[in-house]
């Protein structure tokens, strides 16, 4: 028998073994598929005992169950909604006229567009020429504190509670007898922009209040970064910061008060960052000192469908 005919015989036998006519016979019919048990993203009513106990200690999404090894449909939708909220916060641009409409001196960095803002942090740390000229001609000079509102990585947060934070902080600074610079707002701004601005107006302390990088389901958080003796070339170790400023974290009113305490300490000690001694202010500062316990924020359900 030739090699070719042997191969033909082998192939024929193999085809027979795999099912002579159809390699995959039709599936047997099923009776009506019953809906699986209701699995929903935990709410007060439906969450598991484990999820309920865990939620007193963490915002991690626990006790959500599984279908096979994947998520229930309701969990998928909740997750996608949280993701969409975060992406929307990153993608939203501060309208060009927003600062002026709200009585703030409008400033802009050297960044041309939103994509460049994400890719070129160096350009977001410096003002464009027109803004620098405007700052020099229009802003009050030689103040104790120069607050700067800015978009950062969430224009949504800036437009949401930015004004409330700026007002609260300014009020608390003035109540402590400090002089406060012209209210201003910068577009496409990174944290280190406060160095150039603070230096240009001759402020003792610069404080930039800007949208923080969104997390899942949270695009409305602001952070504040403060530096004593601002000038270009300061590094992260020279700054003090406070994050999670929003309704579910530290509300703007409370944050403004804590930031004013922090500012006062910088002026008293003539320094900021790792060199600043906050030991005696712990109680007054709360978590701005980086030590106090903060209870977990409640995770909110985002998707509701009307049936």
């Amino acid at each position: 028998m030739s090699a070719l005919s042997r191969t033909r015989e082998l192939v024929a036998a193999l085809r027979h073994e795999l099912g002579a006519q159809d390699p995959l016979p039709p599936a047997p019919p099923l009776p009506k598929v019953e809906p699986p048990p209701v699995r929903v993203f935990p709410t007060r009513r439906t969450e598991s005992r484990y999820a309920q106990a865990a939620s007193a200690h963490t915002t991690a999404l626990l006790g959500i169950g599984h279908v096979g090894t994947r998520y229930a449909t309701d969990v998928v939708l909740q997750f996608q909604a949280e993701l969409a909220v975060a992406h929307e916060a990153v993608g939203t641009e501060l309208p060009d006229d927003w600062a002026a409409r709200n009585g703030l001196l409008p400033l802009r960095t050297r960044v041309a567009d939103h994509r460049e803002f994400l890719l070129r942090p160096d350009l977001g740390r410096r003002l464009d020429d027109a803004s620098l000229a405007r700052l020099r001609s229009d802003a009050r000079r030689g103040v104790d504190v120069q607050p700067i509102l800015a978009d950062g990585l969430s224009a949504v947060a800036c437009m949401g509670s930015g004004l409330a934070l700026l007002e609260a902080y300014t009020r608390e600074l003035e109540a402590r007898g400090l002089t406060v610079g012209t209210p201003m707002c910068a577009k496409f701004a990174r944290v280190w922009l406060e160095d150039e601005i603070g230096e240009a107006v001759g402020a003792k302390v610069a404080a930039i209040l800007l949208g923080e990088r969104p997390g899942l389901g949270t695009g409305d958080g602001l952070s504040a970064y403060l530096v004593f003796g601002p000038r270009v070339g300061k590094t992260d170790g020279d700054r003090n910061m406070m994050s999670n400023i929003h309704a579910r974290g530290t509300p703007p009113e409370q944050a403004g008060r804590r930031l004013a305490v922090l500012t006062r300490a910088m002026l008293d000690q003539g320094t900021s960052g790792v060199a600043l001694d906050l030991a005696n202010l712990a109680a007054e500062l709360g978590e701005a000192a980086g030590t106090a316990y903060r209870a977990p924020q409640k995770r909110v359900r985002l998707v509701e469908v009307e049936r």
């Binding site: 865990a54 200690h57 963490t58 915002t59 991690a60």
Partner: peptide, 22 residues
């Protein structure tokens, strides 16, 4: 990776237990 924003040990353990069960 049972991280927690304030290092609440109970919270860390809740995440750990659930992770092990998967």
């Amino acid at each position: 990776q049972p991280n927690h924003p304030t290092d609440d040990v109970e919270g860390i353990l809740y995440s750990t237990r659930e992770g092990l069960s998967y």
